[in-house]
Each structure stands twice: as C-alpha cells, then as structure tokens.
Simulated scan of single mutants.
Amino acid sequence: MTVRDWDLRHYRFLAALAAHGSIGAAARDTGMAQPNASRLLEQMEGSAGFALARRTPRGTELTDRGRVIAGLASDVLEAAESVARAVGALERDRGTLHVSASMTVAEHLMPSWLAAAQERLPGMNLTLDVGNSDEVFARLRSGAADLGFVEGPTVQTGFRYLDVARDELVVVVRPDHPWAARGEISPEEVATAGLVVRERGSGTRQTADLALAPHGTGPRFEVGSNAALAASVAAGLGPGVVSRLAVQLALRSGRLAEVATPGLRLRRVLRAVWSAAEPLPRSAQEFLAMISSPGS
C-alpha cells in the first residue's frame, strides 16, 4: 500500500485524531473499533515512511509531519464534500425545490409565480419559507434553501444573484395626518420624524435606512411585517416607510395616503440569490427562467 492508495477512511481518521488527540476517540468518531484504528494508523505510517503520531501520557498527539498531513486531509475531506453536494444538486431534476423568500416577495410576487410553476413546470414540488432578507441568506448558507429572493440593497458575500423585479418604498400616513394635506414632504422631515419601519435585517428596512441616513435620524417604531406596518400607520402610530407593493390596496381604498418625498432615493431591485459555492439545481434554473419570461 502507498500513500496514493489512501481513501476517505484514512483521511477522516487522521482528521479525527488531530481533533480529539486520542486514538479511541478518533475511532469512535469514524465508526471503527479501536484495534482497527490502531492498525490503520500503522498502515498509514508505513506507507508514509515516517511517524504521524506519538503516544503520550495524555493520549496521542500528532508529530509535526502528522499535523501537516492532517491539515491536507481536511482539505481532501472538504473537497469530497463539495463533490457530494454538487452531485446531489445536479441529480435533482424536477424534484423538490426549496425556496426562501423575503416577506414582500413572498406576499406579493410569489403567489403568481407558484401558480405559473404549477401550470408550466409539472412535477416540481416546491416548498417556500418566508423571512426577512438576512434570514433568507442564513437559510441559503445552511443548505436549508436552494434559491432565495431578497429585497435589500446589497447581496451578501458568497452569493450569486439575478435581478427579477423592481419596487419602490413609499411614505404613507393616515388620510387625516397633517402630511396628507401638504402634497410633499422634505427628506429631512421624513428622516427626523417618528417613523414606523420594518425590523432590522429586512430588505425594506435596509433600503429605508440607506435612503434616510444623509438627512438625519429620529425615533423608529419597529414592526415585524408589512401588514403590521400598514395597520400601525392606519391606527395613528405615525408615518411609515413600506413597499408600494404591500400597500397598493390600502392606497386605492383610501385607508392610507401616500406622501410625495422629492429627493429621497427609495427605488430598489428585488433579486433572486443562491450560493456561489455550488451549482444551481436544474429545478431552480427552470424556475428562474419561468419568472424571467412570464409571458412565454
């Protein structure tokens, strides 16, 4: 046996030995009996031509050369895991597609997308989780979602993205609020007012904070959803900054009034996002192609 004949079992054991400092613990971690683990280490040392570990009163510690090889073993295991994830992604045809969407996208765009997918992508089993933009990125990073949709002004490091829609935030008030009769409000008045806003981590909040920051700051009343924001404004808590998509019905019915805010940059892009470290599953590619060409 030569070093070129080592397989993942050898590398897993060496990485476990580096982590635990004990042949027994490394054996348990890799599912081997301790005598088999000891023989495996002897075989590895024989093929390497030098000692990988030494026995001490406290257990077993790697030699300097052993630590070098253990570090490389971790790289081998990480590469193998990447291959396994890639194969899993490529094997998925029209199986299950796990989507995570921020609230504005989930509430106002996703229903029509899901209906279109049911008609145009038969056989696709799509699951949807809803959270704010930070939570979407967290689900993608953990592998709980294949594809995400966010509304924030930036895309976190390690992700690819595709622009899928455009939106804008609007300042809204109760119809009897003094701002409603004025026609337009300066950016400074908006920024320093007591505003009802979404929670930190939401794309709506990130866009609002970025637009308002140059003009000052004032009290902020945080709520956890677009519906709660609209209801709070209608109840008289104060002016709110929210997606136009989320309040279009309330604006049409007269329940809320929009206030013009010349000088505030409140337009934004809604994006599909996915991990840059793994290939996008075919099911996700088909879903993106569908929403990018809704009339075809």
Score class of each variant (00 low, 15 high):
Leu288Tyr: 02
Leu249Tyr: 08
Pro57Ile: 03
Pro214Lys: 04
Leu14Met: 08
Asp176Arg: 01
Ala289Glu: 14
Gly71Ala: 13
Ala116Cys: 06
Met290Arg: 01
Met103Cys: 06
Leu140Ser: 11
Met44Thr: 06
Leu288Ser: 02
Thr96Ser: 12
Glu107Ile: 05
Ala86Asn: 09
Ser275Tyr: 02
Thr127Phe: 04
Pro111Glu: 02
Ala193Gln: 02
Ala180Cys: 01
Pro219Ile: 12
Arg267Phe: 08
Val173Trp: 05
Gly21Trp: 12
Glu45Ser: 00
Gly201Ala: 08
Ala276Glu: 15
Ala181Arg: 02
Glu188Ser: 14
His215Ile: 04
Thr2His: 13
Arg9Val: 04
Ala37Gln: 00
Ala18Glu: 14
His98Phe: 13
His177Asp: 03
Asp167Pro: 08
Pro178Gly: 11
Pro239Thr: 05
Val196Pro: 07
Gly49Cys: 04
His10Gly: 01
Ala84Met: 09
Ala27Glu: 00
Pro281Asn: 11
Asp75Phe: 11
Asn125Ser: 11
Gly238Glu: 09
Leu90Arg: 12
Glu61Tyr: 00
Gln285Phe: 08
Arg205Trp: 15
His20Cys: 06
Arg220Tyr: 04
Glu286Arg: 13
Arg265Trp: 10
Ser142Gly: 11
Glu91Asp: 14
Gly95Asp: 14
Glu61Arg: 12
Glu286Asn: 07
Ser142Tyr: 10
Thr60Arg: 00
Leu72Glu: 15
Val76His: 00
Asp29Lys: 03
Asp167Tyr: 07
Val269Thr: 14
His20Ile: 10
Ser38Ile: 09
Trp179Phe: 07
Val171Ser: 02
Gln34Asn: 04
Ser112Tyr: 01
Glu91Gln: 15
Val99Asp: 12
Met44Glu: 10
Val155Cys: 04
Val171Trp: 05
Asp146Pro: 08
Gly295Lys: 10
Arg255Ala: 12
His98Asp: 14
Gly88Asp: 15
Gly131Pro: 07
Pro178Tyr: 10
Glu168Asp: 10
Val197His: 06
Leu8Cys: 03
Thr56Pro: 08
Met103Gly: 11
Leu169Gly: 04
Leu210Ala: 14
Ala73Asn: 01
Glu222Ile: 03
Thr192Lys: 13
Ala106Ser: 08
Gly224Pro: 03
Ser82Tyr: 11
Gly46Asn: 04
Ile291Asn: 06
Ala27Cys: 02
Thr261Pro: 01
Phe159Ile: 01
Leu169Lys: 06
Ala26Leu: 02
Glu81Met: 02
Ala80Pro: 02
